[in-house]
Design a protein around this nucleic acid. Sequence first.
RNA 1: GUGGGUGUAGCUCAGCUGGUAGAGCGCUGCGUUGUGGUCGCAGAUGUCGCGGGUUCGAGUCCCGUCACUCACCCCA
Length: 447
Amino acid sequence: MARSTGLSGFPEWLPEGRLVELEVLDTVRRVFELHGFTPLETRSVEPVDVLLRKGEIDKEVYAVRRLHADAADDDTLALHFDLTVPFARFVVENAARLDFPLRRYQVQKVWRGERPQEGRFREFTQADIDIVDVDVLASHHDAEMALVMAEVFASMPFLPRATIHVNNRKVLEGFYRGLGIEDVPAVLRAIDKLDKIGAAKVRTLLLEAGLAETAADQVLALAAIRGADGTVADKVRALGVTDPLLDEGLAELVAVVEAAQRVHPGAVEADLHIARGLDYYTGTVYETTLEGFESFGSICSGGRYDALATDGRTTYPGVGISLGVTRLVSLVLGRDLARATRKVPSAVLVAVVDDDSRSASDAVAHALRARGIPCEVAPRAEKFGKQIKHADRRGIPYVWFPSAEGDTVKDIRTGDQVGAEAATWTPPDTDVLPRVVAATDIDEGAS
RNA sequence: GUGGGUGUAGCUCAGCUGGUAGAGCGCUGCGUUGUGGUCGCAGAUGUCGCGGGUUCGAGUCCCGUCACUCACCCCA
């Protein structure tokens, strides 16, 4: 089993866990590139004032400085805590050299100083896609973000079913404004906790925030609305609150949900209680839960930011969504949802008959590798029983026995052993590389 | 940062009102003397998180400390 102890919040997986993580990383890269997103990496470090630009002084960032820095060196750097803010900075800095609308993906580690907990780390990997344009970004990209991620999830059948919940900040803010609510951030924060603490406690929070009872009830009624088509807007309007911003938000929200529904039915739904704190989001917001693990939190979130990237003269509105790779992998490994079919890439262990004939075994390995079959040569010329055990422990499915009378290869799962030539023998496609499959499939196969 | 819980073998854990450390799994060897897995037998492994105190004696009680963990906050 993979472990994540050691330095709390800085997870390290065992090899079999890393194979699961790589499967996720390979999948996101493949799907992102299939959709034309171009790769980008930004430096790990930003000036503190870039990271905390929006006045969010309480962000838990890690400061970075030279061990030998003198007091005079006050250029404070910090590790980035997400990929959106550095990307916005990068866009503004390189706008003259970039082509818009810009579609980019970015997969990197980020750092946050918060107290670690299950699924919450201090160092973790995010996989982001964003699209930014100049002055105005077409609204159909809001649906596209969710659809690309829906495809990522569909490409990992070992995962529980993922639902991308979509809302629109304009809907919430317009609705609240129509109700005459003043402290919108406080209401957003309260609504964001609905899943965790329930409607009754949220209502108490709302009353504490100064809402009238009727307003609190209206806010909760809005938050309870869900759906995957235009009827969502009807349900909101039935609450009787009117506001121009509300109408604008509803139109955007319905457009996103209906567009997604046409391509990936069931993967995306409008959920009017998604609020997303008080960040830089201005319109569409996303949050993703896995069926059966809703309380684990969102594994893929994001939203539209119309004002994050600006040089004062030109604004680059964007929309993006971020997959929490480490959180997702920690869930898969921690709950044993899926496993790699073996711990090492090798499909074949080439046995060594005796120390003098190691070169013959090396030649077999060379021939197999030349045809793309990962293999390794036994480390010691031990009794064959031990060499087979070596393979068995690691999950290597085949052991190759070189012999002057003709080589043989044994499938140690079935015990079948047949004559074979290194220049032509090929394992089934499913055995060439380790695969990641649902744990239940492995358990059934073993029994 | 605030509050609760837990630290004993590689892993999961037991160890009563203080008496000198155990189980299962795993590991090693043998049976099977160059074809593993099952089974049987034998064997190895611990600064009991760390430091101090009480005591004839501390894994056990007290104080401190560190780590991990859960909740708040925030979020992937």
